[in-house]
């Protein structure tokens, strides 16, 4: 199945009750898929008049206690940020998929990895975080969609899947999750359902209006997530002299580069963050314990994740950057850069 279609099918199987979205390339296949699939399953689908309306429909559905999601890309993801800030401020769960495309402004419809900072540092106003997962295969999209729905409910917060135009359009075999229950709403006593005959109302509003201790709770909640919810993969890092750091589609090319390098006797390894927030800083430290240098491989023009890599390595190792702009990285270019690092001809960025 196609990555974007798996987003919709896996969400349905994870018990998602509603999808609200707006067409945008390269994420539209999710909208198209769920427009037929969700009604077939008795779930709700709305094609909204705008990205603003779509995310605010998500806000309403989440307030009513139902599992809900939207998907978008680049400029559309921008427009959702205010809504995401609202949803986070009200401690509501939802799942958002950003099928990242390259460039700022209108940009291009080709794949990109340049929404990293917006995704992980809070794209909207105020103090909030969203859990961010970065799959690197169609199978992992399916697996992380289920996890995202569960974690959103567990922590009552928005969870973001950061996909990209390549993963979204890619077709791969996939083992879909089993259908789970779609009645999580019954476990949400805080949800809007009418106050009922007992006369106790529920109110959904920015937490600071109803909870004088909200700021302490917010810090505690995010600290707990940072401690418990990191996910990462390390590949041949134990003896690696140079460790590639790469996520999403780029990490698959990076892995191939590691294999090719190993054939030539070059000690190359790969560290792949799966959770981008919280960033797996402890795991990064372990994966680079014996390394001499780190190379961040990203499909963008300026490098974004590299800032987190630098932040968490705290100057312990020189950090280099391999950028592939609007195309997926090339194995040959990665290996050339590794050669340069090892022979001292490459300039570090941190």
């Amino acid at each position: 199945m196609k990555g974007n279609e798996v987003v919709g099918e896996a969400a349905a199987r994870a018990g998602c009750n509603m999808f609200c979205g707006y067409p945008i390339t390269p994420s539209s296949e999710t909208l198209e898929y769920v427009s037929a699939r969700f009604p077939e399953l008795g779930r709700q689908f709305v094609q909204a008049e705008s990205e603003l309306a779509a995310i605010n429909m998500v806000f309403g559905a989440a307030a009513a206690g139902f599992r809900v999601m939207t998907a978008s890309s680049g400029p559309g993801f921008d427009l959702k940020q205010e809504g995401i800030s609202y949803i986070a401020s009200c401690d509501l769960p939802c799942v958002i998929v950003d099928v990242c495309r390259y460039g700022s402004g209108l940009g291009a419809i080709s794949p990109g990895q340049n929404d990293y900072l917006q995704a992980t540092k809070g794209g909207g106003h105020g103090d909030y975080k969203v859990l961010v997962y970065a799959p690197n295969s169609v199978q992992e999209i399916a697996d992380l969609m289920v996890l995202a729905n569960d974690k959103a409910d567990e922590y009552r917060m928005p969870v973001l899947i950061l996909s990209d135009g390549a993963l979204g359009q890619m077709m791969e075999p996939v083992t879909l999750p089993e259908f789970g229950p779609d009645d999580q709403v019954k476990n949400k006593p805080w949800a809007l359902r009418g106050r009922g005959p007992d006369g106790e109302r529920n109110q959904i509003t920015t937490a600071l209006y109803v909870d004088p201790d909200f700021a302490n709770k917010l810090r505690k909640k995010y600290a707990e997530i940072e401690a418990k919810e990191t996910r990462a993969e390390s590949y041949l890092t134990d003896d690696a002299e140079v460790v590639l750091v790469s996520y999403g589609i780029s990490s698959r090319i990076a892995k191939e580069a590691v294999n090719r390098a190993r054939e030539k006797g070059i000690k190359l390894g790969l560290f792949r963050p799966i959770s981008l927030w919280p960033f797996p800083k402890k795991e990064l430290g372990e994966a680079t314990a014996n390394a001499k240098a780190v190379l961040s491989v990203e499909m963008s023009s300026l490098g974004q994740m590299v800032e987190d890599v630098a932040l968490h390595l705290k100057g312990r190792l020189p950090i280099y950057l391999e950028l592939s702009d609007m195309n997926v990285p090339q194995v040959a270019n990665i290996l050339k850069k590794v050669d340069g690092i090892l022979n001292g001809s490459e300039q570090e960025v941190y």
Binding site: M18, Q44, N56, G60, R201, Q203
Partner: peptide, 20 residues
Amino acid sequence: DNMQAAHGRAPASATAIKRL
């Protein structure tokens, strides 16, 4: 029961609540 919607977006949020 009530919710505070974002500026101008109450009809979008109400759309989802009523459908669900």
